[in-house]
């Protein structure tokens, strides 16, 4: 068998593939949010990692101060953080509409540094543990590995959100308006559609996706101020590989990069933080617009 040839027993390989898929689910949800924001607002949202972190901290705060558990937070945290995102779009990002991308990038990057800096100052770098909900404690022995129920839930929830988002943007009327708004906002406005409101809501939705991923991550890693900055660069690479602004590209690339990274962790663990960038470089040489991107 191929797996035997590579010197690894098949059960190890299956386990690593599954773990890769779990991590890929996070990449998919995060890069999906970035793709929505870039596709509709033309903003390279470097604050995405910080917003993901805010989602996790909101979960923690809801439990500690209001006694609202994980399931409530899964709905409320994205709404809270999404509202913050809407405020930021109205108060700050809107002013940069129509000028060079670079300004939006710098502003969101600055926002991320400020938010993360404040949280490190307040909470320290080690973070706080957050317990998985009682219904998802423990796990199941699959024969080739022990799968914690919670990790399984992460994959199911992420895929559900990805499919919903794809459907919303590609198959509904609101999605059609949004896509038309990027193509030709003036024309759409002439038809009586409130385009600025649409873009604000789209940003709020993208931010909400980041926060949703943050809630999913809270029981897995420590809830920690730097949890987003460790991830965001990889997620940007995923978006570039998939094609900036492509929703399907973000989903498929997120999952597949998780798997590629997972396999690298077995065959060459030291390179596992680099392999995605290697793929990015190769894709940029062969298909500059990304795997799913349309060439301009």
């Amino acid at each position: 068998m191929l797996t035997d040839l590579l010197g690894f027993p098949p059960q190890v390989l299956f386990g690593q593939l599954l773990l890769g898929l779990i991590n890929g689910a996070f990449y998919a949800v995060l890069s999906l949010g970035l793709a929505v924001i870039f596709g509709l607002l033309n903003i390279v949202n470097f604050a995405h990692g910080a917003l993901y972190m805010l989602g996790a901290f909101a979960t923690l705060a809801l439990t500690q101060y209001l006694g609202i558990g994980y399931w409530g937070a899964l709905i409320l945290s994205p709404i809270i953080v999404g509202t913050l995102g809407i405020l930021a779009e109205r108060l700050l990002l809107r002013r940069l509409a129509g000028i060079d991308h670079l300004y939006g990038l710098l502003l969101t990057f600055g926002m991320a540094l400020v938010i993360e800096g404040v949280f490190v100052k307040l909470f320290g770098a080690s973070g706080t543990p957050y317990a998985a909900p009682a219904q998802l404690q423990g796990g199941i022995n699959l024969g080739f590995m022990f799968l914690p129920w919670y990790r399984g839930w992460v994959v199911v929830a992420s895929l559900a959100v990805c499919v919903f988002t794809w459907y919303l943007f590609e198959r509904t009327k609101i999605g059609a308006y949004l896509r038309a708004g990027t193509e030709n906002p003036r024309l759409l406005q002439a038809f009586g559609v409130n385009v600025p409101l649409l873009t604000t809501l789209a940003y709020g939705y993208g931010v909400g996706l980041a926060a949703f991923a943050g809630v999913l991550a809270a029981p897995i890693t420590q809830v920690n101020p730097m949890m987003g900055s460790n991830l965001i660069i990889v997620v940007f690479a995923v978006v570039v590989i998939g094609g900036m602004g492509s929703i399907m590209g973000a989903i498929v690339t997120g999952l597949s990069m998780g798997v590629i990274e997972g396999l690298t962790k077995v065959f060459w663990p030291e390179a596992s933080s680099t392999v995605i960038f290697l793929v990015m470089a190769i894709v940029l040489v062969l298909r500059p617009a990304g795997l799913f991107g349309k060439t301009a």
């Binding site: 690593q16 773990l19 890769g20 991590n23 990790r151 460790n230 962790k265």
Partner: peptide
């Protein structure tokens, strides 16, 4: 630093 250790711990 690394954030997800599940793969390394399973190895």
């Amino acid at each position: 630093p690394a954030s997800d250790f599940s793969s390394f711990m399973l190895q």
